[in-house]
Amino acid sequence: MSSSPVRAEPADLELALRIADAADAVTMARFDAADLDVQLKPDHSHVTEADLATERAIRGILAAERPDDGVYGEEFGVTGDSTRQWIIDPIDGTANYLKGIPMWATLIALAVDGVPTVGVVAQPALGRRWWGATGHGAWTNSPAGDRRIRVSDVSDVSEASVSFQSIGQWRDYGRLDALERVTSAAWRDRGYGDAWPYMLLAEGRLEFVAEFDVKRYDIAALIPIVREAGGEFTDIDGGDGLDALSSLATNGRLHRPFLDLIHDRLPETP
């Protein structure tokens, strides 16, 4: 996956934002419902009626407005064969959604030739939304109106705030020692989850977010936002690809120092 994709089409971003509006209506209609239907998938993760209904609604819009584009969604897999693929996670954070915890989001991305160029993260239960498109910057909403966002200029790991998602993930992937090095070196560490910490990073509130066991639909929407905010986004080993099983996002200035900490190697000399 190239880190320098072509400029996104404004019409694609506009469509992604309209899709987010439609998704918000579906997800919020069933959020915290006492009779919410919840099932277990074969991988033992949960899926709710809202996950399914939201992805169906999104696919319906795309079928009408971008019939030649491919779609890859968490719940219904891949349809179509195109260099343009919409990548959808109808509810990222289903475990929170079904518990009535407002920390969940709908993730909408467009990848062109395998490179995410448009990303929208919608958190309607908190009234928040973030979006980015290659060449158009990264943005969020606020009571004062939409505003452009930018990563922090922190350049020393000892002043960095980091989010590691889940201690269990790092343990299960045999990287708990790496997490200990990162958190010991940083100023502050917290286990924020799912898409939200990446958006905090894009806003300049965190300097490091990393996790394991990620799928294409978990990260595709995050990448354009983080990169357009000036950050760097790779896998935990510094590789560049949508299908890695890990992700590492930083404010850019600290990407190499954090990779050095993760892999327990001496910092590169200028």
Rank of each mutant, 00 (worst) to 15 (best):
Tyr217Cys: 12
Leu201Cys: 05
Arg205Phe: 10
Trp170Asn: 03
Ala138Trp: 04
Arg181Ala: 00
Ile219Pro: 07
Phe208Ala: 02
Arg171Val: 13
Trp130Ala: 09
Val182Cys: 03
Phe208Asp: 06
Gly135Lys: 11
Asp189Phe: 09
Ala221Pro: 03
Val209Met: 10
Tyr192Glu: 13
Gln169Asn: 14
Trp196Phe: 15
Arg147Ile: 08
Val214Asn: 00
Ser161Phe: 11
Phe212Ala: 09
Arg128Gln: 15
Val182Gln: 00
Ser161Met: 08
Gly145Ser: 05
Ser158Cys: 08
Pro197Ile: 05
Lys215Pro: 00
Glu203Ala: 09
Trp196Met: 15
Ala138Lys: 02
Asp194Thr: 14
Trp170His: 01
Asp213Cys: 01
Arg205Gly: 05
Ala221Ile: 09
Ser152Pro: 08
Glu159Cys: 06
Gln169Tyr: 10
Trp187Asp: 12
Phe208Gln: 09
Trp130Pro: 02
Arg188His: 12
Lys215Gly: 10
Ser184His: 05
Phe212Asp: 08
Val209Glu: 03
Arg150Val: 09
Ile223Leu: 14
Arg188Leu: 15
Leu126Ser: 13
Leu206Phe: 09
Arg205Cys: 03
Ala202Cys: 05
Val209His: 09
Ala125Thr: 08
Glu211Phe: 04
Gln165Cys: 04
Ser142Ala: 15
Ala220Trp: 10
Val209Pro: 09
Lys215Ala: 14
Gly137Asp: 09
His136Lys: 08
Tyr173Glu: 13
Val182His: 00
Ser158Thr: 13
Gly135Asn: 10
Ala221Thr: 11
Ala202Tyr: 05
Ser152Gln: 07
Ser161Ile: 12
Gly204Trp: 02
Val151Ile: 10
Gly191Asn: 15
Asp213Ser: 10
Ser152Phe: 08
Tyr217Val: 12
Ala221Trp: 06
Ala210Thr: 06
Ala160Val: 07
Leu206Gly: 07
Arg150Thr: 14
Ile149Lys: 05
Ala195Phe: 04
Ser163Pro: 06
Ala160Asn: 04
Val157Gln: 04
Ala144Glu: 14
Asp177Glu: 11
Leu126Met: 15
Pro124Trp: 00
Arg128Asp: 13
Ala186Lys: 04
Leu206Glu: 10
Val182Asp: 02
Glu159Val: 05
Pro143Asp: 10
Arg205Gln: 15
Arg188Asp: 13
Ser163Lys: 06
Gly135Tyr: 01
Gly135Asp: 07
Arg175Gln: 15
Pro124Cys: 00
His136Cys: 02
Val226Gly: 03
Ser163Met: 04
Gly132Cys: 06
Gly204Asp: 03
Ile219Met: 07
Asp218Phe: 06
Trp196Ser: 13
Lys215Leu: 15
Ser158Trp: 00
Pro143Val: 06
Asp189Glu: 12
Ala185His: 02
Ser166Gly: 02
Ile223Tyr: 10
Ser142Asp: 02
Phe164Ser: 00
Asp213Met: 10
Tyr192His: 11
Pro124Val: 01
Pro124Lys: 01
Arg188Glu: 14
Thr140Gln: 15
Gly127Asp: 11
Arg150Glu: 11
Ile167Leu: 11
Gln165Trp: 11
Gly191Met: 13
Ser161Trp: 14
Val151Gly: 07
Trp196Asn: 03
Gln165Tyr: 13
Leu176Val: 12
Tyr173Gly: 02
Arg188Asn: 13
Gly193Leu: 07
Leu176Glu: 03
Tyr173Lys: 12
Ser184Met: 00
Gly168Ala: 12
Phe212Gly: 12
Gly193Pro: 03
Asp213Leu: 04
Arg205Pro: 01
Ile219Tyr: 08
Arg147His: 14
Trp187His: 14
Glu180Gly: 07
Thr140Ile: 02
